[in-house]
Structures are given as C-alpha cells and as structure tokens.
Design a protein around this nucleic acid. Structure first.
Lengths: 337, 337
DNA sequence: CTGAAAGCGCTAACAG
DNA sequence: CTGTTAGCGCTTTCAG
C-alpha cells in the first residue's frame, strides 16, 4: 500500500540502508546518491513510517497535554501556546480532557504513558495531592511539567503564576478603590484557589481589615457557580461593597447576579476577577481582572519540557513564575460622585 | 527498563504467546493460566507497548483533530465532544491547531497521515477548495469527517448545520421584530460564511426587502473584526436598524462598537449572532443567536468516524445536519415603546 | 562510502 | 490449549 524504504531501495538498486541514511542526511553517504534517493522519494511521495521509527528510536515525538476543561478559555489559550511551540519542533500534541475528575486524569495519564509520549504537560485536577500518579511518571522516567496548579508534596517542573500574588493584587486594588467590606468568591480546592484565598487574606490583614468568614463563599469553577455565590453575598447584612472572584467566568456570573438584583456594578459593588479571559472586555460591565499571560504559560511550559526531553538528564525541577498584571476596567473603578 | 511480555513469560515459565493471548482474552487459553498471567502482570505493573502493537496490527487508536482556532469556544466545545466520545472507545486525540492557515493545515494533515492516525476530523481552513489534501486522504484510505465547513467539490462525510438555514432564521427573526434596514456583518470566505450570507439574502428576498450591498460588510472571524465592521455600518445613511452577524464573537464586537457610539441595543439597532457561545448570555447586552449544538457536532462526528473506522468498508459519505435553533435574548428583542 | 545482520515488542498464522 | 516461526518498517552496529 504505502511506499516503504524497501521499495525505493529495490527501485534504485541500492540497499535499504543507503536509503535510510540518505533520508536522515547521515554523514557517510555521498551527496550524489543522497540526491538520487531524495528525488525518488519525492516522486513516489514517500512518507517515513513514524511508528516503525519510534519502535527503534524509543522516541514518539508525542506530547501529552492533560487539561481539566477546554471550555475555560484559559486552558484553550494554554493549549494554543503549547501547540504553537511544539509544532516547529516536530512534536504532536495528544489532548486529554479530564473534566476536572482526578480519576479520569489518572487513567488518561496511564494511557499516555503506555503510548510512550515523550513528555507531559499537566494542569492537574488532583485535589488531595495523590502523589501516586507523579511517582509513576518519575519511575517511568517521563519528563513532565505542571502548569497553573502546584500539587502539594510533588517536587516537579512548574510554570504558572504565584496565586497568592494574584489574590493580593486584586484585593489591594479593591482596597485602593475605597472598598472596605470585601468579599471573596472562592474556587474549589485546588492550589490556585487556595493561593488566591491566601492572597486575599494577606491583603486584608495588611490593611487591618478583619476577615469576615461569611464573606467568603464557594463559587466553584464557572459562571453558574459565580452566579449562585453572588446571590448569597447579596443577601448578607451589611452587603459587601466589593468582591474578588476566583476567576473571570465566576466573576461574569457574579456580575450577572448583581445586575439582575438591581445592584449597580461598580457603584454599589465593585467586582474583579482573575485570568483575563479574552471576552472579559465584552461583558455587561467590562471586567477588571488580573492577567496571567495564559498563552505565555503554555509556551514556557513547552520550552521547558522540550529542554527536559532533549537533555535526557533529568536536572533539578525548575519553577517558572510569570508575574501577574492588574488590568483595571469598569467593574472595579471608583466612581466619582 | 519497562517490563515486557517476554519478562512475564520467562518469569512464569510459559511462552511469550501464552502471555500475549492471555492479555487479550484470546479464546484458546485456559482460564487458569490466564488468571496466572494477569496476576503477574498486575504485580509487575505491566503496560503493553502500543507502538509495538500498532506496528503489527496497523491500528494506532489515534484520531487527528484539525481545528482552525481553539480560542473560538465553538471549536473548543467541538473538541470536548470529540474527546468525550472517543475516550471510552480507547482512542486518543491528536490536536492540530491550524490558526486558519490553509498551508499549515495541509502540512499538519500530512504529518498526521505519516503518523498513521486511524481517522481524522477536520474543520478545514481551505478557502479555495484545494482538493489535493482530500485526495491524498482518499488515496491513503484514511477515513475522515469534515465538520462545520463544507468544502466545495469534496464529497466527504460531514457533520454540521445548514448554514443557509442559520442565516435565514436569524434574518427572519429580525424582520419579525419589525426591522427593515437589515445589515449583515459577513465572515471570511468559508462555506459557513457564504451559506449564512445566502440565507440572509433569501430571507430578505422572501419579504420583498431589497438587499443594499453597502449593508454587507466584512467582519472576519472575531470580535475585533466585528467592532471595525460595526463602525462602518454606524456611519451609513440611513443607518441600519438591525444587524445579523456572522458569529457570536463578531456580534460581541459589534455590540461594543454600538454602545461606545451611544447607539442603544436593541432599541436603535438590533443585533443577532450565531453559534451560541457559552458566554453569549453574559455580554453587555445578552446576545440573541442561532444555536448550532457545538458539542453535539463533535460527538456526532466522533460517532460517524468511529463507524467508518470499524466498518473498514468506506461506504458512501454521509452528511449529518444538526437543526439550528433560534435563541432570543435582549439584543434583538422588540422594545415596547 | 555502502551494505549485511540483528533486533525494537508485539501479533497472525499455523503446527503440535 | 500451548508454542514455534515469521515478520511489521525502520535504525543501530559493525564489517566490508
């Protein structure tokens, strides 16, 4: 069916090895035969069989990309960054969507290992720091880079932001805008959410503002969670005058809830998110946020992983932190009276 | 390093074949030895080598998913649908992001073919119906399913919506709301955009409304294109009283432009998009749209492709059309005076 | 510079 | 039911 090296060799009256070496520009082959072989390859539209090659070189040029939720544009952006960086290096990306389920994740990582991917990039959904999965990777000698979420107890390569910074920056900003009753819609139990919560507490403490535990409500990951959480906050007495939301989708839901309840944003309640998803500017009230350079995270992770793969020698894990950046839009801007 | 069948065989004092057959529950193996083998496999944490297996079975259990833009949530949703359907079938998805570039697409498809993927799902960015790529696929006998965008002259499996319907439904709706000067922000030169434009013309014709060519402007794919296009429309005299936008991101940009120019949506200009991206409800003005069941498209495409792969016999290409559904939100609702 | 031999880890086909 | 033989398409090693 498909044309093989053997065919070209027979065709040209040379040995299979000559063809193999010519293809890979192996040093000991005459330029002349080399051109002759390459020409014939083009004519016959020869495509080397990656599988057979992998079989012997033990390299698949496959990268596993494990993400919890492609619908969240942060991860979609990361995926683009990763794929953009790897494309020119000749690697393909195998996508695994875990839908935030730790077990699915573990299963998928096992499959990717059996597939012998050359490396993995993982935004892990393991809340309770299940180190088994990562030990398996270490044992298998497969390089991997964690992104976005640090896993407690796992000493691995990482690319992301310092989430405590994110929380602190957002909260400091709300304080600077004059807010004093600052609530937080927190995310689920992953490192990013915990970090942002810590940053929130730290900023309040720094300004001597007491943390009211009833001002911290759970919004999960998405807009519907943010909507529900905001409804609870709006019921409180006294009502918060500002809310720092775990991420932008949550913040978008929160804005929707506020407006539906006829609470003006930002006049009566200021809102800030995190992540700077690309439609933040288009929301009912353009959303203030903390940018974390999503596609840069993907690119950096790809570079780091590529280095690990090429160098073979698993050096000390590296941690790359991208500095977060405050972006002020209408949803949190102090209004002149 | 990794444990192989050979190791287990030696370990257990049986032949390699016994192990191989036991693993795959081949009929002629005694239940007893089978259990013995499986037990040892578990103990040694044996993982079959997919590469070696592929080499001989000629099946990779790899699916190529070729998309123009993961950032557009329509495609992200499709990707989730595809991956969700294939996961339980034991297939992995290799992602290729073409960034709307036909050449990148062609290159990537070639790579995926060399990788011997079992099948492909493609939302093609080939504007000018370059049939070479598809002929190569046919020649290679690799089953593939086109999604979202039909390619003129290519007779292949397809899953998507009838775009002319989408355009007609949206435009009819605007007419029903009382609009008469209806503009269209069109997309680039792909089948979806052309179809929607045809539907727009058809609906206007049906109601005896003359099409003004200066009411049709190009908005490309995204929100910035929609923003620019809307600026042009706002300058026209008489100004349109409604706009059907190629897709939701374009519509979001258009809304932004209108509001910034102090033109009220929908009171002074009604707007409708297409695609029902998941944040449509959260925009400045909740966006009316035509839903096309994105994740369903992904799932259906996956099912169809799986069938093609299993059946081996390449039957007549199938075309599956998902019926579009009008979703009315504030951006197009007739206002009571 | 060119080529023959050996083998990557597995399975299909057949023989015992 | 179990095992032997022969590859899949390529690269690595080493001899000409």
């Amino acid at each position: 069916m498909a044309v093989r090296m053997k065919d070209i060799a027979r065709d040209l009256g040379v040995s299979l090895m000559t063809v193999s070496k010519a293809l890979r520009a192996h040093s000991d082959i005459s330029e002349e035969t080399r051109q002759r072989v390459l020409k014939r390859m083009r004519e016959l539209d020869y495509q080397p069989d990656w599988i057979a090659r992998s079989m012997v070189t033990r390299r698949t040029y496959l990268i596993g990309l494990v993400l919890p939720d492609l619908m969240h544009s942060f991860f979609a952006e990361v995926a683009m960054g990763v794929s953009r960086k790897f494309q020119p290096l000749g690697y393909q990306v195998v996508l695994s969507n875990t839908e935030e389920d730790p077990e699915t994740e573990q299963r998928n990582v096992a499959v990717l290992m059996a597939r012998k991917v050359d490396g993995l990039i993982i935004a892990s959904a393991q809340h309770q720091g299940n180190p088994g999965m990562f030990r398996a990777l270490d044992r298998g000698g497969i390089p991997y880079v964690l992104i976005d979420r640090l896993i407690p107890g796992v000493h691995a390569n990482f690319v992301g932001v310092k989430d405590e910074e994110v929380g602190a920056i957002a909260t400091e900003h709300l304080i600077a805008q004059g807010a004093r009753r600052i609530a937080h819609i927190r995310g689920p139990s992953v490192s990013t959410a915990r970090g942002r919560l810590r940053g929130y507490r730290r900023a309040l403490a720094r300004h001597g503002i007491k943390v009211r535990e009833d001002y911290i409500v759970n919004g999960q990951f998405g807009d519907s969670g943010g909507y529900q959480a905001m409804l609870k906050l709006l019921d409180l007495n006294p009502r918060p005058d500002a809310v720092f939301c775990y991420n932008d989708p949550v913040a978008a839901g929160a804005i929707k809830a506020a407006l539906e309840a006829n609470v003006k944003v930002p006049q009566q309640i200021a809102i800030i998110g995190a992540g700077n998803v690309h439609y933040s500017d288009l929301l009912r009230v353009p959303l203030s946020t903390v940018d974390q350079s999503s596609s840069l995270i993907g690119e950096r992770a790809a570079e780091l992983l590529a280095r690990c793969i090429e160098s073979k020698t698993l050096a000390e894990p590296e941690r790359i932190f991208i500095p977060p950046r405050l972006i002020v839009r209408d949803s949190s801007r102090r209004q002149e009276i």
